[in-house]
């Protein structure tokens, strides 16, 4: 019984995180010319591993700046820098985890 409850809680939290990612990220980024996939690859090119990529994205979301942005100057000049996130650390972690799981390279190459 306890096991079933735990599975349910996990499923619900995953769906919530997925929704949070869709709600908080995809809704704005889909209007931009650079896809989330492209941005993910830019982070990968600099940070390499899962822990580094996640830490890098989280840092940028909390403290967005032109200096540490992975995007080109032209892109920033055109679309500007995003606003500082209002999400909590836990919410950010969930969202970044969803982002990593969606675009990671692990298990996709053949």
């Amino acid at each position: 019984m306890v096991k079933k409850i735990l599975i349910m809680i996990h499923l619900v939290s995953s769906i919530y995180a997925e929704n949070a990612f869709e709600r908080n990220c995809v809704s704005c980024h889909q209007k931009l010319p650079a896809s989330l996939q492209e941005m993910f690859k830019r982070y990968l090119l600099i940070y390499s591993s899962e822990s580094n990529v996640k830490a890098g994205i989280k840092h940028y979301l909390k403290y967005p700046s032109k200096d540490i942005s992975r995007m080109s100057d032209l892109f920033i000049e055109t679309y500007g820098i995003k606003k500082k996130t209002s999400l909590s650390d836990d919410e950010l972690d969930d969202i970044v985890d969803s982002y990593w799981d969606k675009y990671k390279v692990f298990g996709k190459l053949k």
């Binding site: 996939q37 390499s48 591993s49 822990s51 996709k108 053949k110």
Partner: peptide, 24 residues
Amino acid sequence: HHFFDERRDYPRDPRFKSAIYDID
């Protein structure tokens, strides 16, 4: 890297075997 993830075929070469590892 540039064509990922439309292309997912890992490059192979008959002269050698290879592997890729991240920074960790």
